[in-house]
Amino acid sequence: MNFDLSGKIAVVSASSGGIGFAIASGLARAGADTVINGRTAEAVECAVAKLRKEAPGASLKGVAGDLGSAAGVAAFTEAVPRADILVNNLGVFGPGTLFSATDDDWERYFQINVMSGVRLTRAYLQGMMERRWGRVVFMSSESGLNIPPDMLPYAFSKTAQLGIARGIAKQAAGTGVTVNAVLPGPTLSDGARAMMADKAASEGKTVEQALNEFVMATRGSSIIQRAAKVEEVANMVLYACSVEASATTGAALRVDGGIVESIG
């Protein structure tokens, strides 16, 4: 299926690399005027230049800024006052149990993973509803359902995104705006590659091999029995952002490779 998003303005937070970049690439190739975001101007400029080479003729804009704070979101939305498509991709992950995680750790996950999407959606949703068309996607995780106790603050933030997306979808009922959450499993993202780099090097393996072994060791229910590629996750997001996805809203769309033991 070829998606046509010509004339739509798409914002993807944290899109200078990894899953975010793959999503931005898909939206740009589908014709959307795509805004690339990253924390530094250098990262954004590199991402825009890379995507221009991969997709000549794509309509791209780069806006640097840390969207993990209210001030950062305010500055960003002043520079980009309208969005027809919003992908709340910004997020951090890492270990932390009930006993090891501090109050500051919990607050950091909440502000970056949860409130960044809340603030951006608040800024853009009203305009989408008035124009009677829009797409909002929250990038959650299978960890939001399959809670790992050794990553509890992270998992909490991903579960929160599911509830928020469902509630906002109901608020936008009947307006032509859809709101969904996408739940990737372990993915060959930049962050995952960095996390596995030392382990892979010490064992004489590629990062992909090491991550696939990690998936089977910690997520043995995986049906694909490997980590997903960033493009595989981006494909689901691209569908959720498409005109064709007009009846898909309030949903938790899993791209977890079958990890979550549920047929629902």
Rank of each mutant, 00 (worst) to 15 (best):
Q126F: 05
T97A: 00
S69T: 15
G62D: 03
S100Q: 12
F110W: 13
R132L: 10
A83Q: 11
F93C: 11
G96H: 03
G68W: 06
A123P: 10
T102V: 09
G134D: 10
R82A: 13
M115D: 05
D105I: 07
G72M: 06
F110Y: 14
V114M: 10
G134A: 12
L120R: 00
D84Y: 04
S116N: 12
L98S: 14
P81V: 08
G68V: 04
T77E: 05
S116R: 02
W133F: 11
A74M: 07
A101N: 08
Q111S: 12
G72E: 03
V63D: 02
G96P: 06
A64R: 02
A79C: 11
W106C: 07
V80R: 06
D66V: 01
G65C: 10
F76E: 04
L125H: 00
Q126C: 00
W106N: 07
V114C: 13
Q111W: 05
A83W: 02
A83P: 10
M129F: 04
L125R: 08
F110N: 12
G62S: 11
R119A: 08
L125Y: 06
G68E: 08
R82P: 06
L125W: 01
R131S: 14
W106L: 13
L67N: 07
V118L: 14
V92N: 09
Q126L: 14
V92Y: 01
W133A: 11
L86K: 03
M115P: 00
A71D: 15
L90V: 15
R122P: 02
V63S: 04
M129T: 10
T102F: 07
F93Y: 14
S100M: 07
R82F: 10
N89V: 02
I85E: 06
M128W: 08
A64E: 13
W106A: 01
G94E: 09
R131D: 14
R108E: 12
M129I: 11
S116C: 13
V87C: 07
Y124R: 06
P95W: 10
V136N: 01
Y109G: 01
G91P: 12
G96D: 03
D84K: 07
V137G: 00
R119K: 08
W106S: 07
F99E: 15
R131I: 03
R122N: 14
A75R: 15
F110Q: 12
S69Q: 11
F99T: 12
V118T: 10
F110C: 13
F76R: 00
G134N: 05
A75L: 14
W106V: 01
P95S: 14
Y124C: 11
V118R: 01
G62L: 04
R122Y: 07
P81F: 11
D105P: 02
M129N: 03
D105C: 01
N113P: 09
R131W: 00
A101C: 07
L120W: 02
M129G: 00
P81T: 09
V63L: 02
A74G: 04
A74K: 14
I112F: 07
R132K: 15
V114R: 06
T77Q: 13
